[in-house]
Every structure is written in C-alpha cells, then in structure tokens.
Write a protein that binds this DNA or RNA. Structure first.
Length: 648
RNA sequence: GGGCCCGUAGCUCAGCCAGGACAGAGCGCCGGCCUCCUAAGCCGGUGGUCGGGGGUUCAAAUCCCCCCGGGCCCGCCA
C-alpha cells in the first residue's frame, strides 16, 4: 500500500521496520507511534525500551537501522534518536516543507489515510420507532451513525447505511388502533393541528396508549396505591394531550377505547393481523408509517444524514425470513421450551460454543457470572418477538450487502438483547455473522429530572433543537454581518446551527450519559463546531486576500519558526489521526484533534500576519501553511457532517 | 439480588482499552488586547485528596480486588 502523504509514509516505514527488528505486530506498533507529550522530545516518538529489552539487537543498532531505512525510502527529513527510553523522530522542516509544497502545487490535499484492508461494512443506525417524531436520543444515534459511515468511507471501506423500520411491534399496533378510531388520516390531522405529520402521529400514539392504560387499570382487579398513582398519571397526561391536539379526534379515541371490553386484546389482535399481512391492518399501518417516515426524511436531510436502504421489519416477516429462521431453530439442538414458549437455549450455547471457542469468547464479551436467560422466539399467540425478527434481520444485513462487518448503532439499554442475538446466531450456525456484528452502544440522553418518554409525548424533538440552534446562529450572523443578503444569512445560520448540534452530540465519548441542557447544546462558543467553521472562514479570508500561492517563491526555511513549525506538522498529522479515529470508531478523537489544530492556528494568527509579511518567500510559505490548515479543518468537518464555511 | 456503564478543576469533559517523559482542554471567574489577515478570536491569571481503600509494578488516573455514589438492564415490550 502506497501512502500518499509524508507522515503516513513515515509511520508505515517505521512500523514495518520496527516490526522486523522487534518481532511485534506492525499494526500494534503503528498505533504507538505518536507525538510525545512535550515538544522538546521531538515530532514523533515511540516507547522503544519497552520492546527492545526482549529483542536481540541493541538500542543503538535499532536506531541506526531505522536511520538507514528512512534514508533509503527518501524520508531523510525524519531523523531518529534515542532518548530516555524513547525513540524520538525529529523532522527537518525545511526539507519536509519543500516536499509538501511540491505536493500542494500538484493539487494534493491531506485526506484520511486509506486502509490496507478495505471491508464491506453495513452501518445500521437511528431506526427509530415510526410512531413519533425523532427526538434527542435519536439525534445522538443519527449523529454517531452518520459520522461513523463518513469516517469509514473516508478510510476506504465500502459502506452501506441502513434504517430498520420497526413497524411490526406493539407500538405501531396501538397507533393503528388509534387511527382506526380517530377516523382521520395522518396528513389530515397534521394539517388540522398545524404540525408536521410525524408529530400528529406521535400525538395519536400517546393519546391511545394512555387511554388504553387508563381503561385497563380501571378494569384490573389489582388495587392499592400503585394502581391509583398510575391511574392519576394517565389521566393527567391525557388532560395535557387534549389541550395540545384536536379535541374531536381526542374524544373519538377516548370513547372508542372506553367502549372496548378489553382494549389490550384489540391491540394484540391488530398486531397479529398485521404480522400476517392481513387487510385492513396492512394498508392502515403502512399508511401511518409511511407518513412518519416522510417526517423522518425531512428532519434527517436537514441534519445531513442519508441512508442507502430502508428495511421494513414487516418485509422481513412477510418474506418468510423469520419463519425460516424459526424452522431452523426448531431443528437446532439449542431449541428448547421456556415458560411454555418456544425458545433458544442461550445458556447451553454459551457453555458449548462460546466458552469453547477462543475467537468467539474474545469477540462476544460475556459479563461475568451473569445468567443470560433463554431467548423466547414466539409468543403463545403465535406472533414473533422483536429479538426473533432481529436475528433474521441480522442475517439479512450480511447477505444483502455481502458484508464483512455489520455495525449496529443502538442505545446501551439494549446491551442484553443485542448480546442474546449474537449468541443465538452462533448457536444457529451463523458464526461469521455472530462474530462480525458489533453493537456500537451509546448512553442515553436524559432531560433534566426525568427520561424522555414517547408514551407521555415528553421529548425535545430534533426539529425543535435544530430550530433553536439556527435562530441562535441567525442572531449572531446578522449581528456580525450588517446589511448582508438575507438569504445568505439564513443559509449560513442553518449550517452553523446544524453543525453545532451534530458536533456536540459526537464530541463527548459515546458512553457518557448526556443530560440535556439545551443552552449548552445550542451555545455556539462552547460547542465549538462554529468555532471550527469560524477558523475555517478566517483561513479562507486570508487566502482570498493573499491571492494565488506561488510555490516556487515559497521558502520552506521560514517554517523553522516555532509556531509555524508546530502548526505545519500538526496539520500534516491529519491523515493518521483520521485513519486511527476511523479504525477505533471514535469520532471524538477526530473532533478533539480539529479543535487543537484550530487553537494552534488561532494563536498563531494573532501574532504572525500573513498578508502583511514583507518577505515574499515567507509570505508564500505562510499562505501555503494556511491552505494546509484550511484543507484539514474543511476535510475534518465534512467527515463529521459539519459544513465548512468560507464566510460567517 | 446479579450484571454492565459512568465517577478526573466550581461546571462539561479528554487521557484509562495497548501503565512510563510536569494530570490536560473548554466553560466560569479575575485582568488585559480591535486606526492591523473576521474579537464566534487572542494573551495572562485562577482553579485538582484523578470517588474511597487495598494490591501488582522500578513506575498506576491507567492493571487487579473490595467499597461508595449515579445511571441502565435483568418481560411471551421495543
């Protein structure tokens, strides 16, 4: 594999050579070569002493061998030396500068280093229940999933992005029942309520769910304070919902549910009929879900998120993939009966397959001493469970794209079922699928005080959040650009707002629970996607004022200046940083790197003017440096789904 | 009851997986910087028993054990 930029090439040569000398896996060494904690030590460093103890060669011999190899490979600008346990590499920035100027003049710009092992990867994300608008939890999911897809593509993988439409479960059945009683279509209701269609559906769902809850509680034989509490809660929620929506429709649903002897049974019946593809449920559910998906698409496209495929859960069922899977399970030695229902014997699979298979044990990380219960496949009424359908869907994802790997972006609250699914796949003979399916989990987003709840219709929607961010941005943009074209102001505000939201959802580590502070997410300073966009705009402005860069006039010796030198080298690290972030599935690493680079640029900017530089050789070199930084921030932002701006 | 995740500066977090070269950012707070490439910026100051205790190691925020606090999960829900 030929690395196309100087630093990638350097690291590749170093890791290959060190690997030969030390007898250690080059990939492992590669990730240990990085900038030292203090600049005085050098530009790159590697903890050599840790490995050389076990190697035959002396440290001096190793360093000399490296020096020779670098020379031979045309990387003479990188000089190795040994210092207190570390192999430190110091760059001759003048030589490196000439090399980079040559590349820049030929049109090269830093890009994520390409992987040596391109794979076919499916990323499934967002997959929100299609019965209410997308809210903040989904926003985190979508931002992570979409960024992952962009990173992996930039790294050179073949990526296929899928949305799984959960239209088969209980929640869609509740919604369908609600619409049946409401005698109104989602679109009519939406226009009556003056809201997006997915909001109208979310309202119907919440009304119907709480009406059913109230009626069921009333007729239940149980008694006591818990029942009273839940009763009161349902009634309070209904009161609030009534005020928010259409009174006539509200009454129809309440009367309808109130008149049912057993509303829960009606829901089950609807669910059963839809799963069998019977009319009128089939058309009704599809019509409702289609309407919600229209709302999803509108929001997602604004958010910069696109999908390659939309998979209907019902299609997986109707195409008999689920039926075939259940047949396979029945023939399997791990088929069992649990609580009178058909199930897969997860404990036995663990004992016989996972623990006996080192690769599987490594890949499927079992919690210690946790008893994972058998996985029930079919309800006693004959309908399937979500996990069963998901096993079939998992197999489908691998087949449909001929995938090497499948990444599912799903909340951390689903760890157990996701684990069960992988174990079940292994037990049913789908070893490749089980081992190459990854649950990319992230912690939930909470509202201050309580969790978001679609049952209570209590959520901050993604649309609302984007609107807030945009209006905040619009105020700022207008203040800074008096008299600017109105359309430009609005477009810029949208890009700043969307960027701020996406960045803020991806920058914290995914396992940090986010307690939603809207002001914080919308704050343009702290959230720093706008800071990066601003830095990019500053760079653009300099280049515009400077005019065309003449690389023949640029003097690389002027890069020896401390601040310029560090900025230059830091920008050149982009291909490596972005590659590692992609391999680690860690968008936050890329985000943090970009912020650091922007900090360096802004500090430098303040004290070392480009266009007022008198010496032509330095001015063109500095302009080239600005171009380099601008290209890196631009490329990095695009990978994070944030639009770089030339003016703001 | 069991499992998993999180606990680092007043606040939000990085560093932990692959232990080492002075614990880092941002926000906040205090004080400075626009006749000069965009002040959404920059410079300086302030601020830490790395939740607590034990252990492994020449070396621990990082690995192991115990404990404490917060969250999530343990359904014929999704």
């Amino acid at each position: 594999m030929d690395a196309s930029d100087p630093l990638s090439k350097l690291v590749e040569v170093l890791s290959t050579q060190l690997s030969e000398l030390l007898g250690v896996d080059p990939a492992r060494l590669e990730r240990m070569i990085g900038p030292p904690p203090r600049r005085e030590y050098g530009d790159l460093s590697f903890p050599l002493l840790r490995f050389s103890r076990k190697a035959n060669a002396s440290v001096d011999a190793i360093v000399e061998s490296i020096r020779g190899k670098l020379w031979e490979q045309g990387l003479g600008w990188a000089q190795p030396r040994f210092e207190s346990g570390y192999l430190n590499i110091v760059f001759d920035v003048e030589e490196l500068g000439d090399e980079v100027f040559r590349l820049l003049s030929a049109g090269w710009r830093p890009k994520t280093a390409k992987t040596k092992n391109p794979m076919r990867i499916v990323v499934e994300h967002t997959s929100a229940n299609p019965i209410h608008p997308l809210h903040l939890g989904h926003a985190r999911n979508a931002a992570l999933g979409d960024t992952l897809a962009r990173m992996l593509r930039a790294r050179g993988h073949e990526v296929n992005v899928r949305f799984y439409i959960d239209d088969v479960g209980r929640q869609t059945a509740v919604t369908a029942l609600g619409f049946k009683l409401a005698r109104v279509s989602p679109k009519e209701l939406a226009s009556r309520m003056g809201v997006k269609v997915d909001y109208a559906v979310g309202w119907i769902y919440a009304v119907t769910h709480n009406a059913i809850e109230a009626v069921s509680l009333k007729s239940s034989k149980a008694n006591g304070p818990e029942k009273m509490r839940r009763m009161e809660e349902a009634i309070a929620i209904l009161g609030r919902l009534k005020e928010q929506g259409d009174h006539q429709v509200f009454e129809r649903i309440l009367e309808g549910i109130g008149g049912m002897e057993d509303p829960q049974r009606e829901v089950s019946e609807t669910m059963k009929r839809y799963e069998r593809g019977l009319e009128p449920e089939k058309s009704l559910v599809r019509m409702i879900v289609d309407a919600v998906l229209e709302g999803f698409r509108e929001t997602l496209s604004r958010f910069g998120v696109a999908f390659d495929e939309w998979d209907w859960e019902s299609d997986i069922v109707w195409s008999s993939r689920v039926g075939r899977l259940i047949e396979e399970a029945r023939k399997s030695k791990y088929y069992t009966i649990h609580k009178d229902a058909e199930a897969i014997d997860i404990p036995s699979i663990i004992k016989e397959l996972v623990l006996e298979d080192p690769e599987a044990r490594e890949s499927i990380k079992l919690p210690k001493a946790l008893e994972i219960p058998p996985l029930i496949l079919v309800r006693s009424d004959g309908t399937t469970l979500y996990t069963t359908r998901d096993i079939a869907y998992s197999i489908y994802k691998f087949q449909a794209f001929n995938a090497d790997r499948v990444i599912n972006v799903i909340g951390a609250d689903q760890r157990l079922p996701q684990l069960q699914i992988r174990i079940a796949l292994l037990g049913l003979g789908y070893r490749k699928e089980a081992l190459n399916m990854l649950h990319y989990d992230y912690e939930i987003v909470r509202l201050p005080g309580r969790r978001m709840s679609s049952r209570r219709a209590e959520y901050v929607t993604l649309d609302e959040l984007l609107d807030m961010a945009r209006s905040r941005a619009e105020y700022e943009v207008r203040a800074r650009n008096p008299g600017a074209d109105e359309r430009w102001v609005e477009e810029t505000a949208e890009k700043v707002g969307v960027g701020a939201v996406r960045f803020s959802l991806v920058k914290p580590g995914r396992l940090k629970p986010i307690t939603l502070d809207i002001n914080r997410i919308v704050d343009l300073r702290e959230n720093t996607a706008p800071y990066l966009q601003y830095t990019h705009a500053r760079a653009s402005s300099i280049l515009e004022k400077h005019g065309e860069i003449n690389y023949l006039k640029a003097h690389s010796s002027s890069l020896e200046d401390e601040a310029r030198r560090h900025l230059f080298i830091e920008a050149l690290r982009f291909p490596l940083v972005s590659a590692k972030a992609a391999d680690d599935l860690a968008p936050e690493d890329l985000a943090v790197y970009l912020l650091r680079l922007a900090d360096m640029f802004n500090s430098w900017y303040q004290k070392d003017s480009v266009i007022r530089e008198e010496w032509e050789g330095a001015r063109h070199a500095k302009a080239a440096l600005v171009l380099l930084v601008k290209s890196v921030i631009g490329e990095g932002l695009r990978i994070l789904g944030v639009e770089p701006l030339d003016k703001m």
